[in-house]
Design a protein around this nucleic acid. Structure first.
Lengths: 342, 342
DNA sequence: TTTATTTACGTAAACGTTTACATTGTTTGT
DNA sequence: ACAAACAATGTAAACGTTTACGTAAATAAA
């Protein structure tokens, strides 16, 4: 019941041999007598020896840990990405240190510094909106810290990135609304400084341009990516003389908030207003919300794969992996002529 | 652009002083001249020095890491607990290594061993259903590994536990149904071997006993804790000659699955059948599901607090902290006489 | 036999810190 | 003036490993 954890020295002393021999026996070196090895292994088991990874890592100057920074992980989205990351990392004996930046630039920076102090061998990050940490990431890149951006990226940085084509899929989502017969499509956008938001807005504009529809600036609002922000937007939209007949939302939470507010106001989806989200969510699925689904697990796996490659020193030039997505059409965006049949 | 990370030695060499002085300056020791300290701090910043935590920990024989094992973290519940844990842990400079056992006993054991090898200083765990690892946890306790069970516990083990009184709150939930006028209340239970499930079933039985209601064994089914399992139960319940007028579900996912299946079958909640869940969830809230809310963040904080106490060697006897919960009444369980008004 | 090679093991340095102890130079007390 | 106390710094050991190097004995080659 000693609080002392068995070390290699204890084994050596008990057997009257040197620590070097014990180490060799344990690491499976060939330069140790079979007889000796067995003796060591037996004693190690007897003393319930566990190698001290810290000491080994200090010597080899590694930690076998990678860091992950996400804005939050209460919504399904980032947890799924993290699971994908863990899957690949664990397979290669890496542990994953998970941090959440809580959507604040400041905590993001602190997390980075903490991960550096923990001597993680690489970092996978999904930046906060309004990340003011571009210089920090630049420093990391300069210092050759393996780094992969996922989902939310900094467009100006030359680094590995794993994303979907937000612009393209936003286009497809809005195109779907247009083809369904909707003509006054509003957009509840996220934060302009967030690349994903900006790109989805672009896709929205692209679709209008492509199908010759006028863009009404007063139908476009950038309120944020959180569910609660939606009511504000809905209230405004419903106050207009000419109301929109559909809303394309920057993500599912906002779309859900939008649907809830509409319901509260006594409006039916899609009969009065159609709604489309982005990124899929269990709640959205249940509410029959049309949305673009991202391959979350796969994104995590790919990001971890690229990070481990960087760590192993395969110094390929920075690459942006664009994964495929999918538009899932549900009842929240029925074609105008089919709506009454519902 | 060197791959070499700045060490205390580099600073010492550049300034022509000893590593001891540098160390003292950095750790805020009083026995160093103010002038020297400033010099060191300036140089440290210039060279972007980050202390190597591994080396420090090796010396002090600690890691400043605690491990957390949860069954899963895609649903809101465990992420919230984890955030609470991180909050307290980070405040005390501890990192959190998060593992998911994926509801399998085997992966749970592997995670434990992995955390041991990583020399975590303590473990917070929510066991899998049918955890066969009681002997493993017993060993950990014997070896004085700080350990706190949270939410899902092993009743026979003497250890720190952070829970709510599942039996009591299940009683309250069912009592609420009874007071609303429901008389044939079914129970979609979880796994019998899972303490939380067993306790919630007991609460269900208690309420029946307390209010003199007969228990109909064929209205009680233990199908599991996942949403998908609910349809099976609903199908069976609806096949009975005398159908239930309410369902008390072991948790929100099952309750949601239950509501969806009822909807699919053309039945209205609560007009045809009332539904009550447990543990709260965003989806449940949106579906207006009556449920018991647990203080997830607080549970995490308390568990982390207790673990850190254990780590610091405050060897109190094992204690079970029972936190308060709350029954949130929503439309899924309207009083029978009010239902038509809806 | 003598020399070269191999085998099995020991010695000691190294990783980046912290800290007990030693060593200065300076101040205080008598 | 001299001992005592103190302040600021240096020296070196320690944490638990791995591994380059050295060494002795045993074996193979000459």
């Amino acid at each position: 019941m000693s609080l002392h954890k068995t070390t290699i020295k204890d084994i050596a002393k008990e057997l009257g041999i040197s620590v070097a021999t014990v180490s060799r026996a344990l690491t499976g070196s060939h330069e140790v007598q079979e007889e000796t090895r067995e003796m060591v292994l037996r004693k190690a088991k007897e003393l319930n020896y566990r190698p001290n990874i810290q000491a080994r890592n200090l010597l080899k100057n590694r930690t076998n840990i990678i860091g992950v920074i996400v804005p939050e992980f209460v919504s399904f989205f980032f947890p799924e990405i993290i699971i994908g990351i863990q899957e690949v990392a664990n397979r290669e004996d890496y542990q994953v240190l998970i941090c959440q930046s809580n959507e604040t630039s400041d905590l993001e920076r602190k997390n980075i510094e903490m991960l550096e102090s923990s001597r993680v061998e690489g970092i996978i990050v999904s930046v906060t909106k309004e990340s003011k940490n571009e210089p920090v990431f630049e420093r990391l890149l300069n210092e050759q810290m393996p780094l992969v951006f996922i989902n939310r990226v900094l467009p100006d940085l030359i680094a590995d990135k794993v994303i979907i084509d937000d612009r393209k899929w936003a286009f497809k989502a809005v195109e779907h609304l247009i083809k369904c017969g909707y003509r006054r499509i509003a957009h509840l956008g996220g934060n302009e400084k967030l690349a994903v938001s900006a790109n989805r807005l672009q896709g929205y504009l692209d679709a209008h341009r492509h199908y010759g529809l006028d863009v009404h600036p007063n139908l476009i609002m950038n309120l944020g990516v959180q569910q609660e922000r939606a009511s504000l937007g809905v209230n405004y939209l419903l106050s207009l003389k000419v109301k929109p007949d559909a809303v394309f939302c920057v993500n599912d939470p906002v779309a859900v908030g939008c649907m809830l507010e509409l319901k509260k106001r006594g409006l039916k989806v899609p009969e009065d207003i159609a709604v489309v989200g982005f990124s899929e969510s269990p709640i959205g699925r249940i509410m029959e919300l049309t949305s673009v689904s991202q391959p979350t697990y796969e994104m995590g796996r790919v990001a971890a794969g690229k990070l481990l490659e960087q760590i192993k020193g395969n110094c390929k030039p920075a690459e942006t992996v664009v994964l495929d997505a999918k538009l899932n059409i549900r009842n929240s965006s029925l074609p105008v002529h089919k709506r009454t049949q519902k």
